[in-house]
Design a protein around this nucleic acid. Sequence first.
DNA 1: CTTACCATGTAAGGCGTTACATGATTCA
DNA 2: TGAATCATGTAACGCCTTACATGGTAAG
Lengths: 182, 182
Amino acid sequence: MAKEKKLDCVILGLLSHEALTGYEIKKRMDTTLHSFWGASYGSIYPTLNGLMKRGLAIQHMDASTKRQKIRYAITPQGHAYVKDWLKQPATIHEVRYEMLLKIFFGAELGAEQALKHIRAFQEDIQQELTALRAMEDILKACLQEDKAHSYYLLTVRFGIQTYQAYLAWCEEATSFLSEGGN
Amino acid sequence: MAKEKKLDCVILGLLSHEALTGYEIKKRMDTTLHSFWGASYGSIYPTLNGLMKRGLAIQHMDASTKRQKIRYAITPQGHAYVKDWLKQPATIHEVRYEMLLKIFFGAELGAEQALKHIRAFQEDIQQELTALRAMEDILKACLQEDKAHSYYLLTVRFGIQTYQAYLAWCEEATSFLSEGGN
DNA sequence: CTTACCATGTAAGGCGTTACATGATTCA
DNA sequence: TGAATCATGTAACGCCTTACATGGTAAG
């Protein structure tokens, strides 16, 4: 297993817990995994297809509704694939904050502009933090229901601590710039 | 200015402070901007070329050495382009941590494996933090030399506070998993 | 003399987003 | 009946990384 496509692994990981539709996978990306991974429909559906062709997942039509609904389940090969990936050291650490770019070049336009970017960022993060805290409460309430919940909680805690640090920085940076940056 | 390619902006931003070669730009990416943006030679050189063709940067051969050396400077149009970009709200906030993916799916292999991933992460971050603290010291020592230094310092502070939060999480997560995750 | 670093670039190919296209169902 | 959400997908296109290819220079 040299260069696995990470989306293969993420989706297989989700499927290893329960069978899901493409739509549901996207939901997970936008909620549970949102603070550290993302994906669009345009990558999810083709990936699901590839997984099927390689025998790592199988689809079965959900006949419970009239609506077209394709549910994907992991195969034993898929399961082996995830486990193998989970054992390898993690290589991808990527962060891209356009806001920080604008702060870095902030001298060009001055403190007013920079403060605006910080405020916008602060508001975004505050919202993310609220969402994560809600998830934290839910997870804490059902920790013993499933061993996996402890691991989910760990990633939520990571997000919370990170976002708190962001907010602390926002305050520090705001003071610094308000006092003339010295 | 609808969808600017961010690398255009980053490079132009760097050039707005001083004329640089492609190699020097890559250096900045790997040091100063490293904690919140990245780029490879394979994207830097072609971008520099595009910037030239659009009249946003000009190149002048550096005759001071026998070695081939192409230094790029920003044009007034390039400068206007950066300023305009700096005024727009930031849109890109991207974080991808493969380590967190492996923690999220951690129940699959158990606490031992998860702890290994955490330890590796912790070591990486500790190194990054050391590098950032060194940059912080340097910047603090020459804050008044250039107004831009205050803004650079702000981004370094962001990295430091973020990484400290990561390390705090590592400790929390390690205790949690060592005590059986409850 | 050879290692490390300076220096520039290209080609192939992967990965992923955006926008588009379509339609069912539920709820107010 | 209209809006929101459920649900699946494709096509175009852009962006970037990796690997490759080449050579100069400085220091030990």
